[in-house]
Write a protein that binds this DNA or RNA. Structure first.
Lengths: 189, 189
DNA sequence: ACCTGAACACCGTTCAAGT
DNA sequence: ACCTGAACACCGTTCAAGT
């Protein structure tokens, strides 16, 4: 009486992420996930506590991938922290465009859903490193927070369509990067 | 064969806003709203197209109130645009703390829900006015966008608990205001 | 040890029937 | 003209029964 495993937690989370992007959070149903992975809905409860648990796993996977993308985006050889900061910001925005629903969920979590601090640290690592170069050791944390807040705010407003009123959004983004960089840099010139 | 009106659209929207804050978006159900206003769920469809329509009305009412609060927060007699900006930012944050779920919904809208530009203009009016004083006529729009993005980002991160890692959040907010003001002001000194 | 069908509670929505 | 009960489709979740 063995029992063939007909799916995997990884496959389930992958299906969840795909559904989130293609059908929104409300389209991420247990039945839809089950269909995708070729199983009946009740079977999912063998790998996942419940729907909220699955959503949490989806968000965590998204945060982890974002962290990797950010890490990979900075050119460590560069001596110009301003340029590194631009690279970081552009990479984050690119990720948000590629995974809008997942990105939104990171900072607009459902009431009950709370991110592990480990994951948050993972995303902040790259930002903190560049912020340290840019603002100096003792201002690194507030500088990183200010930059992250602006970036998150800009992108979520963009995704929400709040910039429809005219003007080139790419240009507005670059303007914002320049201003924020200047604001947090040690010696703006 | 008349028909006594047993509720009002206003009462329904009010109930929706209360439920949103006390029970979250998923607690804002047609049945819960119906219970609150003393009617059965199907009757709500006389005043509201469907649940999404109700949520839209709730968000619009929230945006309108935020706009009023922002307008009321700036001291028009003051000659110091920097101070006006601080007042604006603090008022927005106060509003977000008082209506966290509603505030989140403004810039993290559901997929299908789109804000009327009229409402967006209402909120931005006060911000644009101060931005004009601060950054000059031709930089007013990008300055207002940069400031709004930071503010929205800071508050949503705060509401999401992303600042738990230590440090005084009030202090971080004031630090951020100062930096952003400096970044968008015409003549930072 | 995993999978499924059946069942339950709950939700959004429609509609015929009441007043 | 508004209100309601009944009904339907859909969802999350549990659990006994299969292999």
């Amino acid at each position: 009486m063995p029992a063939p495993e007909r799916t995997t937690l990884d496959v389930i989370v992958r299906a969840g992420r795909d559904l989130l992007e293609s059908a929104g959070l409300e389209g991420l149903t247990m039945q839809a996930v089950a269909d995708r992975v070729g199983v009946k809905a009740p079977s999912l409860y063998k790998r996942v506590r419940n729907r909220d648990g699955l959503v949490t796993l989806v968000v965590e996977a998204t945060v982890l991938e974002l962290g990797e993308r950010l890490d990979a985006s900075v050119d460590d050889d560069s001596a110009d922290p301003r340029h590194k900061f631009v690279q970081l910001a552009r990479a984050a925005r690119r990720f948000a465009h590629a995974h809008p629903a997942g990105f939104r969920l990171i900072f607009a979590p459902r009431t009950d859903l709370r991110l592990d601090s480990a994951e948050l640290v993972a995303v902040s690592a790259a930002v903190l490193r560049v912020a340290r170069e840019l603002a100096g050791e003792e201002h690194a944390l507030p500088a990183a927070r200010t930059a992250t807040a602006w970036l998150n705010g800009f992108v979520s407003m963009e995704l929400a369509g709040a910039f429809n009123l005219g003007g080139d959004v790419d240009q507005a983004f670059d303007y914002g990067i320049a201003r924020i960089t200047e604001a947090i840099a040690r010696n703006p010139e």
